[in-house]
Simulated scan of single mutants.
Amino acid sequence: MRIVALVSGTGSNLQAVIDAVRAGDLPLEIAAVGADRPGTRGIERSAEAGLETFVVDFKAFASRAEWDAELARVCASYEPDLVLSSGFMRIVSAEFIARFRGRYLNTHPALLPAFPGAHGVRDAMAYGVKVTGCTVHWADAGVDTGPIVAQRAVEIRPEDTEDSLHERIKVQERELLIEVLRGLAEGGIPSVDLPEQSPGADDADQSRR
């Protein structure tokens, strides 16, 4: 199974995947790693691991649509079986989702459908729930609304800060992501056939990221 991974930040989840592939525990090939801006630690990690990398800089394009189309083109050029959003903080368009329909996997630091969006950890703490967690799901044109593949729960402790809780969620998120990728690579997790998105389905959310 060939994957293209997309990152925006440090790439800690991706590093766990790289390590598992190197150790022979994950039967897949990381064809390339891409980012939405230059200088991310995730790209640096990938280059240090000898992986091919690319940057489609969001700020270098006159419109979101142009950026999105170029991102889709570059990802497709690697002929991936799966595109992995690994801390990728950009919402892609319905056209991108259609191009990789049922092949765009995302991780989220909350138990979806609760607390979607960019601040899942903060929102869970603010709401006062006692348990949150992480989700791996198939992305659709909404915001964290696609079919759920797997989840893990994480207790919120009285002494938790947003940072301490997020770090404990990340530990479970990395393990869950590797578990899901292994299941997909080995055929233990079935593929999903997402319904086709109507044009403009994600327009209301495009200003969020």
Rank of each mutant, 00 (worst) to 15 (best):
residue 164 S to W: 09
residue 166 H to I: 14
residue 103 R to N: 05
residue 160 D to Y: 04
residue 102 G to W: 15
residue 148 I to N: 00
residue 96 F to H: 14
residue 157 R to A: 13
residue 97 I to V: 15
residue 134 C to N: 03
residue 182 R to E: 08
residue 96 F to I: 12
residue 119 H to A: 13
residue 163 D to L: 13
residue 149 V to A: 09
residue 93 S to M: 05
residue 170 K to E: 13
residue 182 R to P: 07
residue 97 I to Y: 02
residue 170 K to H: 14
residue 188 G to I: 03
residue 127 Y to I: 12
residue 185 A to W: 00
residue 189 I to Q: 06
residue 117 G to L: 01
residue 144 D to V: 15
residue 109 P to Q: 13
residue 111 L to F: 02
residue 164 S to A: 13
residue 138 W to T: 09
residue 182 R to Q: 10
residue 141 A to D: 13
residue 120 G to D: 04
residue 183 G to L: 12
residue 105 L to C: 13
residue 154 V to I: 13
residue 189 I to A: 04
residue 172 Q to W: 05
residue 93 S to E: 10
residue 151 Q to C: 07
residue 91 I to E: 03
residue 169 I to P: 00
residue 161 T to N: 02
residue 165 L to P: 06
residue 184 L to I: 13
residue 95 E to A: 15
residue 116 P to K: 05
residue 116 P to D: 10
residue 96 F to V: 05
residue 106 N to E: 02
residue 118 A to K: 14
residue 142 G to N: 10
residue 142 G to W: 09
residue 155 E to G: 13
residue 151 Q to E: 01
residue 90 R to L: 01
residue 184 L to F: 12
residue 121 V to R: 00
residue 177 L to R: 06
residue 171 V to Y: 05
residue 169 I to R: 06
residue 166 H to W: 14
residue 183 G to P: 06
residue 183 G to D: 09
residue 182 R to L: 09
residue 152 R to M: 13
residue 141 A to R: 08
residue 128 G to H: 01
residue 97 I to W: 08
residue 145 T to S: 15
residue 170 K to D: 08
residue 94 A to G: 15
residue 171 V to Q: 04
residue 126 A to G: 03
residue 139 A to T: 13
residue 98 A to S: 14
residue 123 D to K: 00
residue 124 A to P: 01
residue 133 G to A: 02
residue 165 L to D: 06
residue 104 Y to C: 08
residue 159 E to P: 10
residue 168 R to V: 11
residue 123 D to C: 00
residue 94 A to N: 11
residue 95 E to C: 01
residue 129 V to Y: 01
residue 105 L to P: 02
residue 147 P to Q: 12
residue 146 G to Y: 03
residue 145 T to F: 04
residue 168 R to T: 06
residue 165 L to Q: 05
residue 101 R to T: 10
residue 131 V to G: 01
residue 176 L to V: 04
residue 120 G to S: 12
residue 168 R to S: 07
residue 128 G to W: 04
residue 150 A to F: 04
residue 133 G to N: 03
residue 151 Q to G: 07
residue 188 G to V: 12
residue 130 K to A: 14
residue 150 A to T: 11
residue 108 H to F: 06
residue 112 L to D: 04
residue 144 D to G: 12
residue 110 A to T: 06
residue 177 L to Q: 07
residue 182 R to M: 04
residue 92 V to M: 05
residue 173 E to Y: 08
residue 107 T to S: 12
residue 104 Y to H: 09
residue 90 R to E: 10
residue 110 A to M: 00
residue 175 E to C: 03
residue 131 V to N: 09
residue 120 G to W: 00
residue 133 G to P: 05
residue 175 E to G: 15
residue 186 E to D: 14
residue 177 L to G: 07
residue 150 A to W: 04
residue 150 A to Q: 09
residue 144 D to T: 11
residue 99 R to G: 08
residue 172 Q to Y: 15
residue 97 I to Q: 10
residue 116 P to A: 10
residue 177 L to K: 03
residue 190 P to F: 01
residue 160 D to I: 14
residue 167 E to R: 14
residue 124 A to T: 12
residue 190 P to V: 03
residue 90 R to Y: 04
residue 121 V to E: 02
residue 91 I to G: 03
residue 117 G to N: 07
residue 168 R to L: 08
residue 191 S to T: 15
residue 123 D to Q: 00
residue 132 T to P: 03
residue 97 I to E: 08
residue 145 T to K: 06
residue 173 E to N: 11
residue 106 N to R: 06
residue 93 S to L: 07
residue 135 T to C: 04
residue 109 P to I: 13
residue 95 E to W: 03
residue 174 R to L: 10
residue 180 V to K: 12
residue 142 G to Q: 05
residue 161 T to W: 00
